[in-house]
């Protein structure tokens, strides 16, 4: 039947359908990334644009040779020698790893509870989990600034309960960053978990119960292993964007200990060091490719079994 789609008059249509999105993404996704790689090999200059060498098509082959000769690994050398960069990457790793674990611990019971609800209630719970995702992300972070600020609701509530005497500075701390991240990414963890848990075959649990397995043990031996793909998908969906997160640590976090997204932002906007910002980005993509490749390998292996 594929042949029919390609036959005769269909050719221009097939070409259009395939070429339009491919060309768009090649021009505005692939090409820009190649430019980042190129500029990461350039050096800063007080010029417009602020890096050198710039490539001049008119200079022909000689120009290309001169251009290639002027490329350098200087930005990467700085990246390796300045502790600031390593510290930011490690901070991102720490925040992404800890947040993913917290998200899993909080998200799993919610997804499990949703999957066990009466089928009539499940779509409603699902919509309610997705809905906050549609409200602006900036608004959701701002809502937490409202709550966590020194005279905010959280401190007022703690004081009213007699738990603290003086207001606690919640903002500009790792705690605030974790709260903001867990709050923003919770739907990304709950949805893939729910998708696998909801498909769990109830007869397997019945069989376990018939054979005398207590309910909590059946949960650990049947439900949890079967939900592994959902756990992997949820962790991946959270870990990767959290690693490169900028807005949440910028608004809620401590400015003395920054994540790599913030470092990239500062290099670019404040220091105007485009090659350094590009090198940071290239290394970041390299780091984030690792979990993606691992996940795809694991999935390919699972599909084979």
């Amino acid at each position: 039947m594929m042949a029919r789609w390609r036959g005769g008059q269909g050719n221009w249509w097939a070409a259009f359908v395939r070429l339009a999105p491919t060309l768009w993404l090649a021009a505005f996704f692939l090409l820009p990334f190649l430019i980042i790689v190129k500029i990461s090999l350039s050096q800063t200059a007080i010029a417009q644009p602020p890096y050198t060498p710039t490539f001049d098509l008119a200079a022909g082959l000689a120009g290309l040779r001169a251009f290639l000769a002027a490329l350098s690994l200087e930005s990467y050398r700085i990246l390796g020698s300045d502790f600031l960069y390593l510290a930011s990457y490690l901070k991102s790793l720490q925040v992404a790893a800890v947040s993913s674990v917290i998200l899993l611990i909080i998200g799993y019971p919610i997804a499990y509870g949703m999957a066990r609800l009466h089928p009539r209630w499940q779509p409603i719970a699902l919509v309610l989990v997705i809905l906050p995702f549609w409200t602006s992300f900036l608004i959701r972070i701002y809502a937490w600034i409202n709550i966590l600020q020194r005279e905010g609701l959280f401190n007022t509530a703690l004081a009213a309960l007699g738990l603290v005497d003086t207001p606690v500075a919640w903002l500009s701390s790792d705690t605030a960053v974790y709260i903001g991240i867990v709050y923003s990414y919770l739907p990304f963890m709950v949805l893939p978990l729910y998708a696998t848990l909801e498909k769990t075959d109830a007869t397997l649990l019945e069989a376990a119960a018939d054979l005398g397995c207590p309910r909590w043990r059946a949960f650990w031996l049947v439900t949890v292993p079967l939900s592994a793909p959902g756990v992997a998908a949820g962790v991946l969906l959270c870990f990767i964007p959290i690693f490169g997160e900028f807005v949440i640590p910028d608004l809620l976090g401590d400015s003395r200990s920054v994540m790599i997204g913030q470092t990239l932002w500062t290099e670019f906007f404040a220091n105007k060091d485009w090659p350094a910002a590009s090198a940071v980005a290239v290394v970041l993509v390299g780091i984030l490719l690792l979990p993606i490749v691992l996940h795809q390998r694991a999935q390919a292996r699972a599909d084979k079994d």
Binding site: A26, I36, P241, L264, W274, A281, L284
Partner: peptide, 23 residues
């Protein structure tokens, strides 16, 4: 094309923004 459609979904926004600006 499938890979190019999925990649921007997981690419950190700071990188997408920076790369487009440089373009």
């Amino acid at each position: 094309l499938s890979a190019m459609v999925l990649a921007p979904l997981v690419m950190p926004e700071v990188i997408t923004g920076l790369s487009l600006l440089l373009l």
